[in-house]
Amino acid sequence: MRLEDMRNLGPKSGEWLERVGIVDPGQLAELGAVEAYRRLRDAGIPGLSLNALWAMEGAIEDVDWRLIPAGRKRELLAELDEG
């Protein structure tokens, strides 16, 4: 499976992730959505928003990003702030 074949991700997301060295779904799952988002943010990816964080979390969990509970989103943001 390719990154862009994961739920919530598409060609653009796959390209962004590959630009920061994340090349397959297993690697994304191992790093986690927050670390992947940090790498994208640090790389200065234009147009990056928190929707990318939700999309990656949903991709890892295989759920629609819109169904991620508010509590989980708060946890992700707290983890992001820690780094």
Rank of each mutant, 00 (worst) to 15 (best):
K73P: 00
W54N: 04
L17E: 04
R2Q: 14
K12P: 01
E61Q: 15
E75Q: 14
E4C: 07
W65Y: 15
L53P: 02
L53E: 05
L3W: 08
W65P: 01
L77Q: 11
A70C: 01
K73D: 00
V23T: 15
I22W: 01
L9P: 02
N51H: 01
R72P: 11
L48K: 08
G83I: 09
L77T: 09
I68A: 06
L3N: 05
G44E: 07
L9Q: 05
R38H: 11
M6W: 01
L77G: 03
G71P: 01
E82Q: 14
P46T: 05
P69L: 08
R39S: 01
A55S: 15
L48V: 07
E57F: 04
E79W: 05
R74V: 12
R74T: 11
G21K: 09
G44P: 12
K12R: 13
A43Q: 04
W16N: 12
E30N: 07
R39D: 00
L48P: 07
L48W: 10
L53W: 05
E4M: 04
R41F: 09
E4N: 10
D64V: 12
L50F: 15
S13K: 05
A29N: 04
M56T: 00
G47D: 09
W65T: 08
L17R: 02
R72A: 10
A33H: 02
R19M: 12
G71K: 13
K12D: 10
E4K: 12
R39F: 06
P11V: 14
D64C: 09
P46E: 10
D81L: 14
A59M: 05
L48H: 09
E61D: 13
G26M: 10
R66M: 06
D42Y: 05
D62W: 03
W54L: 13
E18N: 12
E18F: 00
V34C: 07
A29P: 07
P46L: 04
I60D: 03
R39T: 02
R7W: 02
A43G: 03
R38A: 00
N8H: 09
E4F: 02
A55G: 08
L28H: 02
K12I: 14
G14R: 04
A29Q: 08
G58M: 08
V63R: 13
D42M: 06
P69C: 08
M56A: 01
P25L: 09
V63W: 00
L17D: 03
K12C: 04
E4Y: 05
D5R: 11
R39P: 01
M1E: 10
E18G: 07
G47Y: 11
L50S: 06
M1G: 13
W54I: 10
L28G: 01
A78Q: 14
V63H: 00
G32F: 03
D42Q: 13
L50V: 08
V63Q: 03
G26K: 15
G10F: 06
D81N: 11
G71M: 03
R74I: 10
L28A: 04
G26T: 11
W16E: 09
G10S: 08
R74N: 08
R66N: 00
R7M: 14
G10R: 09
M1Q: 11
M6A: 06
L48D: 02
D24M: 04
D24W: 05
S49H: 13
I22V: 15
S49M: 11
R66K: 14
P46Y: 07
D5V: 01
L48F: 11
A78R: 15
A29G: 08
